[in-house]
Amino acid sequence: MSTHFIGEGNIGSAPEFREFSKGNDEPNRLLRLNVYFDNPVPKKDGTFDDRGGFWAPVELWHRDAEHWQTLYQKGMRVLVEGRTVKDEWEDAEENERSTFKIDARRVGILPFRIEAVTVSVKPGTREPDPEPNAT
């Protein structure tokens, strides 16, 4: 069972990167985030109450997942798009458990608390010429 999901929240812990080998093929790369999806409801005094927020594991499978592990940071505000997936497993006492996770298609960084952004040069292109000084 899965359902389309779009949600905004904060990363709650350092991202976790894993790599799974596939023989001689390029390995599958996974970036796992723990995100709190809040539901801020405005109050009359201008502050907000969080009603119905929830934590969810977010899994992003991508070849650049290892690099993104350093890009995404605890406390960062993100917009997650993907699908919810029911994950069934057994705990240490062999009790059947289930939880929902987000199989992310995209995880966008929102500009809250961001101090700077640096964009790398597109592979196969040369650096743009610096702008001439204005006089």
Rank of each mutant, 00 (worst) to 15 (best):
S2E: 15
T3V: 14
T3G: 07
T3L: 15
H4P: 12
H4F: 12
I6G: 06
E8A: 13
G9R: 01
N10I: 06
I11E: 02
S13L: 11
A14P: 06
A14R: 14
P15N: 01
E16F: 14
F17A: 02
F17G: 04
E19N: 01
F20L: 07
F20M: 08
S21Y: 05
S21C: 00
S21Q: 12
K22C: 08
N24D: 14
N24R: 12
D25A: 13
E26H: 09
E26G: 04
P27G: 00
P27T: 06
N28R: 11
R29N: 09
R29S: 03
R32G: 02
L33H: 00
L33Y: 03
Y36A: 15
D38Q: 11
D38H: 06
N39K: 07
N39Y: 07
P40F: 05
P42R: 07
P42A: 06
P42W: 06
K43R: 14
K43Q: 12
K43Y: 09
K43M: 08
K44G: 04
D45G: 02
T47E: 08
F48I: 07
D49S: 14
D49W: 03
G53R: 01
W55K: 01
P57H: 12
E59Q: 13
L60Q: 02
H62N: 12
A65C: 08
E66G: 04
W68A: 03
L71C: 12
Q73C: 10
Q73W: 09
K74F: 07
R77W: 02
V78S: 02
L79E: 09
L79I: 06
G82A: 00
G82P: 01
R83D: 15
T84D: 06
K86A: 10
E88P: 00
W89N: 05
D91L: 07
D91M: 10
E93W: 11
S98K: 13
D103G: 05
A104D: 04
R105N: 11
V107N: 02
I109F: 03
L110Q: 00
L110P: 01
P111H: 08
P111G: 04
P111S: 11
R113N: 15
A116Y: 13
V117G: 04
V117P: 00
V119K: 14
V121N: 14
G124V: 04
G124N: 04
R126L: 06
D129F: 11
E131G: 08
E131I: 10
N133P: 09
N133E: 14
